[in-house]
Design a protein around this nucleic acid. Structure first.
Lengths: 228, 228
DNA sequence: CAATTAACTTAGCGTTCGATAAGTTAACTG
DNA sequence: CAGTTAACTTATCGAACGCTAAGTTAATTG
């Protein structure tokens, strides 16, 4: 009764081709509906019957795992680091470029919604991604900033406070994308580039403060002062 | 097998008391499991039978709506604005206090998880909350910062770019909480207060920059009064 | 204490879910 | 072109879902 969504009708596809097609459509489908959505509706959208899904993936969870593997591979294989180390450009331009492109990729291709669904489900996917992609990238950023400030800039020199500050920028851009594309709030008057620019400038100043403060041993651990 | 979570066993409760108990437990339960979780398991956790839920809420969706109403009321009734306008403290202290407490409240009481589930489900809850709570608060923050910079500081003077910069800080803190409490990544070496402090300092600098360079031509809604 | 009310339970309905088994047919091969 | 393989469908199972109807029992009232 239901008709296929694919370009031409019920062709038989080689095993691996069909498998890849299922994964690609499942990424889009589960990103929209969440992992609780039914395999029947997914199959209908692909234009196949539901039991065929289980000939390529033993369980629904196995299909979801294949989605994670695919997305992880896709994001981890990109080379954002190169953009950061291009010394032909000044640091500020490099950072703006890096964060602009990284922020754009974060939303693209259903990544952000799958990522949020996964985090809420409690699996290890997010921790794996953060530990092996995001954290190293932010550390590279911190190293570049420290280098341009003329302070020691081996990876071990980066303080936790500096990393956290970069996490604020990263998370802020992340949340900006969520607000626009998940919550459906459009901020019409500013574009992403402008936001990234202002964010990078702010964080650059903050990093400078942290780096200088770190030189002084026993730096300021000020508690809030409610004074008078 | 499962025993009631309440203090003492199967007492009969007056209508409104039971209703409130169900809502409170449902907040915790759905925050953990998502709205796809079953009403049977919720009932078991409360220590009642499942059909009793439907004597207080006509449908599962009605219960979820009651959760939204309760959480919205709880968050919107707090008076964070007062903290911002306390001129006995300097601006920086006020901002650090404000963002510290707001960030703490964001995670507390299952708020952040319910909020994320809701956003992904596509309802109007998040847009409503942002428009009536978050946006006004950030605008108040921007007004206070502009006031301390000696530039025009009526609410209409706040540019979109300034709001977006504050959104980065807000989103960054939000995402920090997510990372710690949803993804289960603990950043042991820094506490939230220190992160807020660094973030506020960075954003204060960024806001100063934006306010000064505000008369860039080509801006859409930028009717800037600043002369220079 | 008997009668009434209201809180709560027991039993079960129709539907949808993930998953399986068996049968069908398109595509390849010699 | 017959035979084999592999891609795909039909039909269905048991479990879990939201929700309902009818009965039971604790608390209240005169």
């Amino acid at each position: 009764m239901a008709q296929k969504t694919s370009s031409h009708a019920g062709k038989r596809l080689p095993n691996q081709t069909r498998r890849r097609q299922i994964i690609e459509q499942a990424i889009i489908f589960f990103a929209e509906q969440g992992f609780g959505a039914s395999t029947r509706e997914l199959a209908e959208r692909i234009g196949i019957t539901q039991p065929l899904l289980f000939q390529h993936f033993s369980t629904k969870q196995a299909l979801i795992q294949a989605i994670f593997d695919t997305l992880f591979e896709r994001m981890a294989s990109k080379d954002w680091g190169a953009m950061l180390h291009d010394r032909n450009k000044d640091l500020r331009s490099r950072l703006i470029d890096f964060f602009s492109q990284y922020a754009a990729a974060l939303y693209d291709n259903s990544w952000i919604r799958i990522y949020m669904f996964s985090g809420l489900a409690g699996g290890a996917f997010n921790r794996l991604y953060i530990a092996s992609v995001t954290e190293p990238l932010l550390r590279e950023v911190a190293v570049e900033i420290r280098a341009s400030l003329g302070v020691p800039h081996s990876p071990s020199d980066v303080s936790a406070a500096e990393t956290e500050l970069l996490w604020i920028l990263h998370g802020g851009l992340y949340y900006t994308a969520i607000r626009r594309h998940i919550y459906g709030m459009d901020s019409p008057s500013t574009d992403l580039a402008q936001v990234v620019e202002a964010g990078v400038d702010s964080i650059l100043h903050g990093m400078k403060g942290l780096a200088q403060r770190a030189k002084v041993p026993g730096g300021r651990k000020n508690r809030r002062v409610v004074a008078e």
